[in-house]
Amino acid sequence: MNIFRFLGDMSHILSFVILLLKITQGKSAAGISLRTQELYMIVFCSRYLDLFWNFSSLYNSFLKVVFIACSSAIVYIIRFKSPQKDTWNPELDNFPIQYLIGPCAVAGLLINQDWTPFEMIWAFSIYLEAVAILPQLFLLQKQGEVENLTSHYVAALGAYRGLYLMNWVYRYFTEDDYLQRIVWFAGTVQTGLYIDFFYHYYQSKRGGLSRPVKLP
């Protein structure tokens, strides 16, 4: 464990806290992509199957359960609970996620770590996580302006994988046989997708006054 990875996990947890607060307190899922939340639920449920047989640390196992529980709760609230479910707009949030899931599944089959069924599923979850934010970014693009809490949610989510990139650099230079090309590649793509958002987020938050984040 190193500071980058710890901060990355904390940023990830923060993104869950912000989103859960927003949809439970704010009683609205407006501006939030259910599609992206469904993809995250698939990512965590598939990647953390090894909860039952791989025990790396209590920290790891505990957060795996937390991430599966939070992502499932978010999908449940936006899909089934009133009044949130009425604030979700299927016409706006209509990104064809099958075009994300399909290629990631093929990539997981072809490019993975140990050619075992779990490793294929694990690689699938890594590739899927890299593109899972796309429906959310497309929704924000359509709306042009980003609600304040939503902008903090997306920023925390982007920061989590950005911090993981630093963690991989740190581990590469401090551990001898550390090699994780799959997550290095996927994590770089994932963080890259946020660059444009980060630019507009920074522009809107600069100088302290919180002007709304505007996406062109």
């Binding site: 790396s56 957060l63 140990d114 490793e119």
Partner: peptide, 10 residues
């Protein structure tokens, strides 16, 4: 076969 490396990251 390389020993299966346990994924220690989330």
């Amino acid at each position: 076969l390389a020993p299966e490396r346990v994924h220690d990251e989330l």
